[in-house]
Amino acid sequence: MPHVAIPSLMRNLTAGREHVTVPGNTVREVIDNLEHRYPGVKARLCEEGRIKPGIAVYIDGILTTREGLRERLDADAEIHFLPAISGGIGE
């Protein structure tokens, strides 16, 4: 099952848990299952059916796009939700 690293600023919703394992074949399914267990998570991460601007989704260390909800996951995928880097690219 995919492993989700809960960002420190969202652990108030997960009773302080840093890592959660939830079923799901896509990022969308994982977030839906997280929401089922920890209500409020989905509203923090998504709006209008997309990942919120300002949030970056990493799957196995690789950044996905704002359409990342569709991303398919390996059985042991590791998912991170991080603040999106703005101004993060230079020469």
Binding site: L9, M10, E18, R44, G54, P83
Partner: peptide
């Protein structure tokens, strides 16, 4: 102030707060 999807009530010059732990 936005903190990973959560927005504060009052306006502020702090646009966002991020944290890594």
């Amino acid at each position: 102030t936005g903190s990973l999807g959560e927005t504060a009530e009052e306006p502020s010059n702090v646009a966002s707060h991020l944290q890594h732990k």
